[in-house]
């Protein structure tokens, strides 16, 4: 109890003084996870939707794979991305290891299956509803996917938020591929791990509260955005 109190105080102190390191780390966390979210969404939304509207031979196998990938432990993803990006690995020449880009890649791998799977679920229902109309209107596959994504955007927003939550709270993978380098690849979660390692629970907890606040803030912001947009139409 004492420790939680100290953590709250530490968090409060960090925030009101706009601690330089905290601001930098927080911005980097946002940068990495939002970039990962944008990229993952750009891949997962069309893919999940496409999966909902197309019947093909390996569809079931693809969906099963997707669901399996969703449960992949982040550390394993981190390890694989590490081995790929390592100087001795196939993409070593790019020199991406221990950069924010590597962290984004790992997070994209982690959250794309999650977003694609949620998208697929939501889009399957919507497609059942729209199926006859969209066929009757002679839509192309592209038009179908776009229509479903647009009209199902609320469900997709939920999926994207789930992805963001997973990305910003993730530590195992980005610790491995980012290296937790001060001023370069240190983000909230890796900083928390580091401070915990030093037995500095108050600061670790403080950072944890900042992380929670940040996740809440982004959730509210996105929901607020979607609500103002809906207001005129509903």
């Amino acid at each position: 109890m004492n420790e939680i109190w100290a953590g709250l105080l530490a968090a409060f102190h960090l925030i009101v003084t706009l601690d330089g390191d905290l601001v930098e780390i927080t911005l980097r966390s946002l940068q990495v996870s939002l970039s990962a979210l944008v990229i993952a969404s750009a891949l997962a939304l069309p893919f999940g939707t496409w999966l909902a509207i197309r019947r093909f031979r390996f569809r079931r196998a693809t969906i099963a794979t997707l669901n399996a990938l969703m449960g992949l432990p982040p550390v394993v993803v981190g390890l694989i991305v590490y081995l790929l990006l390592s100087r001795s690995g196939p993409f070593g020449v790019l020199g991406l290891l221990f950069t924010p880009t590597a962290m984004i890649i790992a997070q994209v791998v982690i959250i794309t299956p999650l977003i694609a799977s949620i998208t697929h679920q939501a889009m399957r229902e919507l497609w059942a509803e729209y199926h006859d109309l969209l066929i009757s209107l002679n839509t192309s596959n592209r038009q179908r996917v776009l229509t479903l994504i647009w009209d199902g955007r609320r469900a997709l927003l939920t999926g994207a938020l789930a992805g963001f939550g997973r990305a910003i709270g993730e530590v195992g993978a980005i610790m491995i591929v980012g290296g937790n380098i001060d001023n370069a690849t240190r983000v909230l979660t890796t900083a928390i791990a580091l401070e915990t390692g030093k037995g500095n629970f108050a600061l670790a907890l403080g950072l944890g509260f900042v992380l929670i606040a940040l996740a809440l803030l982004v959730n509210f912001a996105i929901h607020a955005l979607s609500r103002t947009e809906r207001h005129s139409t509903w």
């Binding site: 919507l126 509803e129 729209y130 006859d132 109309l133 009757s136 229509t147 009209d151 199902g152 139409t233």
Partner: peptide, 13 residues
């Protein structure tokens, strides 16, 4: 061709 279905399909718009 155009079709008006028995149970009208409304786009969520």
């Amino acid at each position: 061709q155009a079709f008006v279905f028995q149970r009208p399909i409304m786009l969520r718009r």
